[in-house]
Write a protein that binds this DNA or RNA. Sequence first.
DNA 1: GTCTATAGTGTGATAGAC
DNA 2: GTCTATCACACTATAGAC
Lengths: 198, 198
Amino acid sequence: MYTDRMTTSERLIESARELLWERGYVGTSPKAIQQRAGAGQGSMYHHFTGKPDLALAAIRRTAEQMRATAEASLSGPGGAYDRVRGYLLRERDVLRGCPIGRLTMDPDVIADPVLRQPVDETLDWLRGRLADVLAEGREGGEFTAGLDPERTASTVVATVQGGYVLARAAESAAPFDSAVEGLLALLTAYRAPDSPSR
Amino acid sequence: MYTDRMTTSERLIESARELLWERGYVGTSPKAIQQRAGAGQGSMYHHFTGKPDLALAAIRRTAEQMRATAEASLSGPGGAYDRVRGYLLRERDVLRGCPIGRLTMDPDVIADPVLRQPVDETLDWLRGRLADVLAEGREGGEFTAGLDPERTASTVVATVQGGYVLARAAESAAPFDSAVEGLLALLTAYRAPDSPSR
DNA sequence: GTCTATAGTGTGATAGAC
DNA sequence: GTCTATCACACTATAGAC
């Protein structure tokens, strides 16, 4: 419950963000959002036109935050490999899964173009950003010419998203870590023998 | 609607399987299952104790089928790399996602040990089976000694599961294919220069 | 073994008082 | 801007007739 100095609208968005992450769109009711926000029914329907509208605000904010977090790893110091490695190994609440990726399993989100758009854009942005870093590493002689930045970027994003699936199935972060370590080992094989950062 | 010669119990299970795949556990109501099966309320509660019991029967059957399909690729002819490649490139209904993997995003499935067990076991079996094939390939000189079968197997399963996430976000199979191709390219780097199947 | 009836609760939304 | 009251409907399950 948010009883602090946030506005009612802010509390509703934050509550929706948490519930969408925990239970998804289908599993989250307006009533549950209102209760967690400490707001009445009327407040919610005053600030938002309905469940989809509030969910959209929540999803957009989560997407924004996800980009900022990823960008912090990918635009940091070090070579391309180290930055991708940093992104993959950064601290995560693995068992909670990805707040954006999990929405792809929500039929009502995928069926609504307006709700799906920020999900699609965020994952595609991440893939593109990773592709940029990998391409940069290849041009800089850190990776061999055989590395395909675009496809490899897709593999990196998929490994992370799938790692969450494995972790939640096992109720353990171990399979996520294993998948990431396996990917990093495979990537290592494409590092140039005379790579600058070696 | 299953109006053919299946028993009512069978029709209920098949309906539940479809709905769990499409809408997940939280998004699937007993009523919807009954209607798709062409059965009344009483029939469902005669054959099953309730929604979790019917879902368990449906999940177990889907898990069984998923193992059989994977095993067909992994125990087929050819070398280890070709069998893993065959598993990754086999025809899939990519936009529908994995009927087992999607359940990990269902809070009520993960919270119930009985429902989670077949999900966990199936994904762990798949990981183990892939690790066996990769280890076999390494012992046979097809892969270099640097390949870690266990971690790489986790990466393979994660890439597939995450590929579904990307595909559903984009409403296109392209990101799935891209992720799989990227993974195969990375795996290629670990093939021994004098590999038997080259 | 299948059906309908019913119960009690939750859902998503609107109306109107304050 | 926030509240409570109310709506029509869906959810999960039980009871009891056939």
